[in-house]
Design a protein around this nucleic acid. Structure first.
Lengths: 128, 128
DNA sequence: TTTGTTATTGCAACTCAGTTGCAATAAATT
DNA sequence: AATTTATTGCAACTGAGTTGCAATAACAAA
């Protein structure tokens, strides 16, 4: 299905993504928007935005679900099963899509359809 | 710390891993061993086994935590940040470590320390 | 093999991200 | 403006995983 109506809540949520270049966890969005909408609404809008290919989600190292806008306005049409990784800083928690593709080789006897790739380490600001 | 005592529960749990070549989710272990030990015990033993480098864990596409024995008897000492991926079948749910390494290139301005790589698709048995 | 030390376990209650049913509300369409 | 139905708020729920504490059982020492 996906987004059909441009409600006040949808606009507020999209605005949060436009303020930042990093990914945002669902939990963080619930917190930031707590005076503007119910937490169910946050989760439901995220689901619709993802169905519509406006954002995508992935799981962080803490198990939380993170969301980010598609940079180039839509899902990658992965011709050769490339994948873009996500990076999460072990120190400050900053999480982002990396604008690179890491090619995944064919795996014998396995029909690979999608790839989740999370790199964990220290970001530029946290490297001592 | 890790495993210190070889209790009946530890042996029963290790036995489950020796029965299978695939990974097992914590939830599945709780279920299988429900008449032999409490679920807290399952989680606590898994934690100790992981601390001791006997098993390793990763997150499946459903958000569950999966565990598998280290094939070669210990954690990989990843010299060049290679990583071994995990594969989960979208159809039957079978989940396993793939015995291959996928090299991850250096990422500018990011100090990558560890990598989680999950491939999702159809396993040999489920490819129609 | 008995005793002492303390790691391990069972239990029951808890945590907390995320979900759900349903009635009320508000976009979009006519 | 009236109508349709997607969307929202609310409150209760779900379910994997965690925790505090008292009881139990490995293991070491004697």
């Amino acid at each position: 299905m996906g987004i059909i109506r441009k409600t006040k809540s949808v606009k507020a949520l999209l605005n949060e993504f436009e303020q930042t270049e990093t990914a945002i966890s669902a939990l963080e969005l619930v917190e930031r928007l707590r005076y503007q909408m119910n937490k169910s609404t946050v989760y439901r809008i995220l689901e619709r935005l993802e169905d519509d290919g406006i954002v995508h989600s992935f799981t962080g190292r803490d198990g939380l679900t993170w969301y980010a806008l598609y940079q180039d306005g839509g899902p990658l049409n992965a011709q050769h099963l490339n994948t873009h990784p996500h990076f999460q800083c072990r120190e400050c928690g900053k999480t982002q899509c990396l604008p690179i593709n890491i090619p995944i080789p064919e795996v014998e006897k396995h029909n690979v359809e999608s790839v989740s790739l999370l790199l964990v380490g220290k970001c530029e600001d946290c490297v001592s």
